[in-house]
Amino acid sequence: PPQTPVRAAMNTIQQLMVILNSANDSPSNSLISYFNNCTVNPVENILQRIEHLSYVFRTRFAEAVGQACVEIGVQRYKLGVRLYYRVMESMLKSEEKRLSVHNFSKLLNNSAFHTSLLACAVEVVMATYGRSAFECGGSSSETDLTFPWILYVFDLKAFDFYKVIESFIKVESSLSKAMIKHLERCEHQIMECLAWKSDSPFFDLLKQSKDREGQIEQPEPTST
């Protein structure tokens, strides 16, 4: 049959469903093992964060599309959590192989890492369903729930979100070409605009870098 925009959207959703229907709502044994290997076990914080962001997401979603659609938001978030666990496990396996270490205590106790990873997973789900979520919400121009909406919902810095995108794409081999393009567009939006907002942690890093440079004798002035 000929490919139509509707058929393409349905295929993408179906593809995501196939992956996530068999995925877990909770950490797998493999993930639990990574958590247990940590100097400080991160599992309680991870579960609390998911619970807290579930409430925040549900509230913001309902505000955007109407209280009648709140259950759609609950389902989207649930799929996002499944993808988050799935990608986290793949990332840790990849990092274990690359670094030859088993203790990821620092990474797994880093709140920005988890929030960014969960935001990226939820963004993939939201972008997969695209505008279908707005059908019961009325005005579409006021209810665009794709990126960067998730940054506002999770109170997340764009610069931190940026850090997980490439690794996410690298380890999640089932992402469609359209989804990779979407994440690439998110990257470009961050690089060109969002990372340069005045409260961006990017400026702290620039300052740190400049301070380090200042400590080392520089024979030549830094060029513009």
Partner: peptide, 21 residues
Amino acid sequence: SQGYHFGLEEDEGVSELFDCD
């Protein structure tokens, strides 16, 4: 994959990006 330009070097990953190396 799929035309995406990977920018991270072989010795870089999320651990380094989140300052956890």
